[in-house]
Write a protein that binds this DNA or RNA. Structure first.
Lengths: 194, 194
DNA sequence: GTCTATAGCCCGATAGAC
DNA sequence: GTCTATCGGGCTATAGAC
């Protein structure tokens, strides 16, 4: 009852890892199959054994990356009850991933999936960001977030958190995110708290 | 004493306009010369008469777009004295441009210039964003912005302003930016005010 | 399953007429 | 200055041996 395509030497995973790194760095269209071959050490023929074509490889990477992020976010939310703490969980996850899984975080921040999927939803419409908006909406009901449009408050918060991560990757911010995390989280919360 | 290449019918400008739109939409590498020919109504030969190659067209567009933004920003700063008002000038410029010059604003937000210029400075290192940081630093000195690292406060503010613009372009935000501008500016200022 | 070699296609840039 | 037609290069995806 096993999958019909066995990946005995983890080649599939190596291709995925190398390709995501390259896609983020150079953009989907700039990455050639020979590039992926060189970076992963897996041959052209083997790549086409695991993926129908370059586009379906990109789609697979996209889905996996989003699903992994969503799972991590939900896991960290379990122990948090107040709105402030839940939003902090998002910020901390993002800051942690920027250090421990930079490929994943850069993908989420910078990847243009429209280069290979014409009519896919923007990332900010996907589950994790829907969840953020829901948390903010509940925060307004509970009186923890200032009254107003929950959408606007959610955007103000995530903007104040995600922009520093972008600038850290672009080497504009010199200090590691962990050193300035508390100040960033405080600023973001000050923008929307009741 | 005139330029040696005359552009009698504004073809050069039409190429620039069409190419910037296409570059933002599809990314540098996805845009082909035939695409630009179709979108601008200018022939291949004429395009190569005005620009040495595709890359130098992209560089020209990049420089012009940044310089235009910087000029507009400086102009709007002239009448503002307090830190809050200066930062508001930035926010209002960005919101206005998103409506009146969406191509320009999308270019500034989304364009990956590293696709055609390998070692160019990130946009956030360029003059307009240096200026923002300077304004915030002065605001801290004057006691208008809370004490701390001016870099962090500048990033928190611009993040809370630019993210909504991104989401508006991605059609995640349904309301026009002008309708929610005051709330966004208030949130961003709340994040960093003294 | 995995490899190498290559077919077939499309793009950027140019040549040469007007 | 502007056009159309085309060349050479480099890409994706496949063929066929192992």
């Amino acid at each position: 009852m096993r999958r019909y395509k066995i990946d005995s030497q983890g080649k599939r995973a190596r291709v995925v890892k190398a390709a995501r790194r390259l896609f983020v760095e150079k953009g989907y269209h700039s990455v050639t199959i020979p590039d992926i071959v060189a970076a992963s050490g897996v041959s052209t023929g083997a790549i086409y054994n695991y993926f129908a074509n370059k586009e379906s490889l990109a789609r697979y990477i996209h889905e996996r990356t989003l699903a992994d992020f969503q799972e991590m976010f939900e896991q960290r939310l379990e122990s948090r009850s107040s709105t402030c703490e839940k939003l902090r969980a998002f910020a901390e996850l993002v800051f942690d991933l920027a250090e421990s899984e930079p490929d994943m975080m850069e993908y989420l921040l910078f990847m243009r999936h429209c280069e290979f999927m014409q009519n896919a939803a923007p990332i900010c419409f996907t589950e994790p960001f829907q969840l953020i908006r829901q948390i903010v909406a509940e925060g307004i009901e509970k009186g923890e977030v200032k009254p107003g449009d929950f959408f606007i408050s959610a955007v103000s918060y995530t903007g104040a958190i995600l922009r520093p991560v972008e600038l850290r990757f672009r080497c504009v911010l010199e200090k590691p995110l962990h050193d300035i995390a508390e100040e960033l989280i405080a600023n973001a919360w000050a923008a929307i708290k009741a």
